[in-house]
Design a protein around this nucleic acid. Structure first.
Lengths: 155, 155
DNA sequence: TATTTTCCCATGATATACCATATTTATAAT
DNA sequence: ATTATAAATATGGTATATCATGGGAAAATA
């Protein structure tokens, strides 16, 4: 059993007519090693799909459960947005998951999807949207840290 | 055997003339895997039905039992409302439960029911009421976490 | 006996498991 | 470095199992 895991890298895979996509092999290895499951939901902050291990959400659920606000309104609200949208996405023997229409629509994905590692989480983007988002992020970071510009070669 | 158990997703099922509803398959899998039972009761805070595993209520009872507020009026009141109202809802071989009139009436459910995952709990709503509630929650959460709005994609 | 409740079967729709081929990546040999 | 060979991955297609749901028979209740 591995000690650490991180969703990394950026890989583009095809989405077929039924909504099936190959989960990147590295991601599958993480699922296998941790014995957990992939869970996906619509990002609250961007037009993309977000994914993580069920373990992560389970931790969240446990925290809420123990916070003694068992019947509090705010807890209800937060847990709704997360758990009401999330769903398990197990992959078949060939390594594919089947994304729901709801998710595909939210991320404007049709026949191609970009998996972007985010450490404990990952995101799935429409390729064009991701290109823009990546540019946005780079610009943002350079604005805040002009020193980086000097070092920076091109990719 | 799975490590984690979470009620997730939002699914709409029909309620037939006899009051039968299919419990979402994922929920049934949880019941099966844990060997526990589904327990439902009228939500204290909203016009909906609330459900969870009997295990969870047992944990709640234990927590109350051990808490310093064991003799507080408030705790007494809450536990009265919950335990006095809760009841087991086993599902048949086709995966359906039969909700009581009391519950259906409280949630204003007639021929369609929305199951909303809440992590360790779930709720069952009348579709129209749920639509309103979801809108309310989104507005509420965005108000409290403006950062989400700022980054925001559309939708 | 009338009414309700609990099972069980039937069916269309959908998701899942599986097989086959293509493509890519890694490994070894020259 | 180049080519050959092998392994792993991605993807298309199809069969199979599962699910939601309608209907009805048997059992229980009043």
């Amino acid at each position: 059993m591995r000690k650490t895991f991180l969703f990394m890298d950026t890989v583009t895979n095809k989405v077929d007519a039924k909504g099936r996509v190959s989960l990147p092999a590295d991601y599958r290895a993480i699922v296998k090693d941790t014995g957990s499951e992939i869970v996906c939901y619509r990002s609250l902050s961007a037009p993309c799909i977000e994914g993580c291990l069920e373990d992560l959400l389970d931790k969240l659920a446990t925290d809420m459960e123990n916070s003694l606000d068992f019947f509090s309104q705010e807890q209800d609200d937060i847990s709704n947005l997360v758990f009401g949208d999330a769903k398990r996405y197990p992959f078949d023997s060939t390594g594919r998951i089947m994304l729901s229409d709801k998710l595909l629509k939210h991320a404007q994905i049709k026949d191609s999807a970009v998996f972007v590692g985010k450490g404990r989480k990952f995101q799935i983007w429409n390729p064009e949207n991701w290109a823009k988002e990546e540019a946005r992020i780079r610009a943002e970071v350079l604005k805040k840290r002009p020193s980086l510009k000097a070092q920076g070669g091109k990719e």
